[in-house]
Simulated scan of single mutants.
Amino acid sequence: MDVAYWITAGLLALFYLYGGGLKLLRSRDRLRPMMAWVDTVPMRTVRMIGLVEVVGATGLVLPPLTGIAPWSALVAAIGFVLLQIAATAVHLRLGDRRIALNLTLMLLAAATATVGPATTWL
């Protein structure tokens, strides 16, 4: 199960580090082509989502690696499931039916939460 965890957690961490980093660093104009929803929320909220994504990505990887509060990796994975539920709702509310990526990330986060190393959640 450790291998499955590191594959799923690694993929999620890379995705969220990239996406969160973009939300933290880029302007609304530079985000708009990739994320049309940024026009519907204050930029402060976009930055906050980016910060949550970067912290969550770190939470998937560092606690199991260091053995410090390893249960927090489970919290990060569950947090990403909740984040994608909210993101899917936003997309649907805006009439955007392209939610395949959101659903994929939600399932990957759920899988990460269920395949964590046996010692991780203790």
Rank of each mutant, 00 (worst) to 15 (best):
F15K: 06
L14A: 15
L31E: 05
A4G: 04
D29P: 02
M106S: 01
N102H: 15
L22K: 14
E53G: 00
T104L: 15
A76R: 04
A109Y: 04
R97K: 13
G79I: 08
G59V: 06
F80I: 04
I85L: 13
A87Y: 07
L62V: 15
P70F: 09
A76T: 11
W71A: 14
G21I: 10
G56M: 01
A76K: 04
V3M: 12
P117A: 13
A36D: 13
G21E: 10
F80E: 05
L108K: 05
A110H: 03
V54E: 02
D39S: 12
G21C: 09
D2E: 14
A118H: 13
V52P: 02
T45F: 12
T119Y: 10
L14V: 14
M1N: 09
A69D: 08
D2H: 08
G56E: 01
M43L: 14
T45S: 13
A118Q: 13
A69E: 12
P70L: 09
M35C: 00
F15T: 14
T45R: 10
T119C: 00
G59Q: 01
V46I: 15
L94E: 15
N102K: 05
S27D: 10
A36H: 12
L22M: 15
L24E: 01
V3E: 11
L122W: 07
L24F: 01
S27E: 09
R32N: 00
A4Y: 05
T58W: 11
G116T: 12
L60Q: 04
A57I: 08
A118G: 08
P64L: 03
G20T: 02
D2N: 14
Y18C: 08
V54Q: 01
P63H: 06
A113P: 09
H91Y: 07
P64C: 04
V52F: 07
D29S: 14
Q84R: 08
A86D: 07
R26G: 00
A73Q: 07
A4L: 15
F80A: 02
V55M: 11
H91M: 11
D2I: 02
V90S: 01
V38N: 03
V3T: 14
L14T: 12
L24Y: 00
L82V: 15
Y18I: 13
I78M: 10
G59E: 03
R44S: 14
